[in-house]
Design a binder for these strands. Structure first.
Lengths: 118, 118
DNA sequence: ATCGTATATCGTCGATTAACGATTAAGGAG
DNA sequence: CTCCTTAATCGTTAATCGACGATATACGAT
């Protein structure tokens, strides 16, 4: 079917989302933020006090996490209340964990029969 | 204990490793490479044929994955045989999955009792 | 209306990333 | 030894990242 190859299939889209979420996870400060949010679910600006980073830097990390869908932010007067997105966490698990499981099985299978050294 | 605060604790080190592995996972091409390696465990240069990327670009992605510990490469004559690292996959699962589980629980708990709107 | 707090955004800087083509290094085949 | 294949590396480019200080915005309190 020529002309239709530009439409990405479902797994490609899922991998793109998986990559985007993994990328957002790929910074120690952002993992620390997610851990903080899990502890209290909404410490708002308290996060800045917990991390050795400037307020603007934390705000940027929060934006990255929000863009990737990891967290949501609700305005609460002059402050913002962030919380983990339940949907994001379960989506991520739903896509990643089967892949990891499959990869691990692949590793175990190829431990003895390596196709490079027959 | 003054003077000892520069030594990172165990969880900090684990988070750093988690972040590094997640970062390496944070590109669609690299996820595609890992999927390919899981399918055959060692396609060597075949990966280039599977992806719409130049050979040098694929080589770079392989280097990123190798540096992060996701894969290992063994020389096999003029070619290189890459395979998933079983240890890396299980390490990643061991650190990430408990965290995800905990985050999901935190989400469920705070769904009704939000600390921002009492 | 003004002040103070909280947070998002802007502008900047150096470092890193992603992509490519070209080149080099290392083996195997003739 | 010479050619060919394979793959890593080099050099370049544009884009993005990570950090910061400074600024702007939004709101509550006085």
């Amino acid at each position: 079917m020529p002309g239709l190859t530009t439409i990405p299939d479902a797994s490609t889209i899922l991998d793109a989302r998986l990559a985007a979420m993994a990328k957002a996870l790929g910074h120690p400060a952002r993992i620390a933020i997610l851990r903080t949010l899990a502890r209290c679910s909404c410490i708002c600006g308290e996060i800045v006090k917990e991390l050795p980073l400037a307020q603007s830097t934390v705000s940027q990390h929060l934006k990255v996490l929000k863009t990737a869908g990891w967290i949501t932010g609700v305005l609460d007067g002059p402050r913002t209340c962030y919380s983990l997105s339940a949907e994001a966490v379960s989506d991520f698990r739903f896509v990643l964990e089967p892949a990891l499981e499959q990869w691990q099985i692949a590793c175990d299978c190829s431990a003895d029969s390596n196709c490079c050294s027959p």
